[in-house]
Design a protein around this nucleic acid. Structure first.
Lengths: 195, 195
DNA sequence: CAGCTGACAGATTTCAATATTTGTCAGCTG
DNA sequence: CAGCTGACAAATATTGAAATCTGTCAGCTG
């Protein structure tokens, strides 16, 4: 926490911003707080990020990218059969979200606010995830496991149909008993539809 | 609009409340406003509804029930083949929501607030809709069109998987170009999964 | 001179005083 | 006497003045 005297980088500012957001929440986190945490004046922060909105956007992107990367590993595991990979990938997405929401609800609420105010970044994130899904489904179509005319469209449909298990607006319901079964039921139905 | 001197019934109060909500929005609609619209004192309103929350809840239920009824007609049209009926029903649900959101966004926003504060009523509404879906799917299973072990579970899965096309939290995206295709893609996938 | 500071104007938020609303009930009225 | 009224206390919302924050920039510093 002690202000190190290393050069001020975008990276260090982002880390400090995450910490301030975690501490104060999205409504009370100010760029003055971030500057104070770094032991610099708030003017210095504006040298690296044009506006507070840009800073928040960068933090949001970082957070979403961490999830994307974890899922990319599953999507890339080309040894496994595509159907199992699809199930794993969807389960991993659900689990990741469910844990984030369950383990630290306040932090999750903070990031929900951030994603709400950064539609463009979320859009790119969704495009990224859909592309991963498309890769899995394309391979499934190639190996004959799946029978789909347009893998990209199928990927979008699968992603949208499972929204209830990854979209933050349903986070409240992820702790209800029986969600696991509901998730399985939806995924089973979709996988059957792809075959 | 002129205060008729008929006896004050729950029905008349509900109608007046809808009007006040339409005019003032959910944040500024008071029970004093409702009483004024009816030409009575607000004490009289409390004779029919214990609290303001109960009044709003009743209005919410009324609104949701109107949608349920329209869909029930489609679900009950037992002449048609179950697959077509399922598609019609889902399309009708989507269209109904999309029009409500598109035609009068402010009123739709008002009812979105109301449904957010009345989770229990919404839960019953969803149970009702799911029961309608279950009936269609059960008939499809009987006639051999669908092959599902548990029609009720399948109905829940179909309803949840199509959330993007009826849940108010996605209302913003219902005007985007291409939603129609997305809807069709998801429904096609689900129907294939049911067969 | 590259990078940081801190004073500043305008925008936004906070907070406490003020006003409105909710919900009750004793009593009026037809 | 069934149903309505309106005065009331407590809860909630509004308001506007004061405090804080955002974003800029001229000038300092190493």
């Amino acid at each position: 926490m002690a202000p190190t005297s290393e050069t001020l980088t975008a990276e260090r500012i982002l880390a400090a911003t995450e910490e301030v957001l975690r501490r104060h929440g999205p409504a009370k986190a100010t760029v003055v707080d971030v500057a104070r945490a770094l032991g610099v004046s708030h003017g210095s922060v504006y040298r690296h990020f044009r506006t507070k909105a840009a800073l928040r956007e960068a933090v949001t992107k970082r957070w979403l990218d961490r999830t994307s990367q974890k899922l990319a590993e599953i999507a890339a595991a080309s040894g496994r059969d595509p159907e199992a990979r699809l199930r794993d990938w969807l389960a991993a997405l659900f689990e990741a979200k469910r844990h984030k929401a369950g383990d630290d609800p306040e932090l999750f609420a903070t990031y929900t606010v951030l994603t709400d105010e950064n539609g463009a970044v979320v859009g790119e994130h969704i495009a990224d995830l859909t592309a991963q899904l498309t890769r899995i489904i394309t391979q499934g179509a190639g190996s004959g496991t799946f029978s789909v005319p347009d893998p990209a469209a199928a990927a979008r449909a699968v992603f949208q149909a499972t929204g209830r298990f990854h979209d933050p607006c349903y986070a409240r319901e992820w702790t209800l008993p029986g969600v696991g079964e509901e998730f399985t039921a939806v995924v089973d139905l979709l996988v059957r539809g792809l075959r």
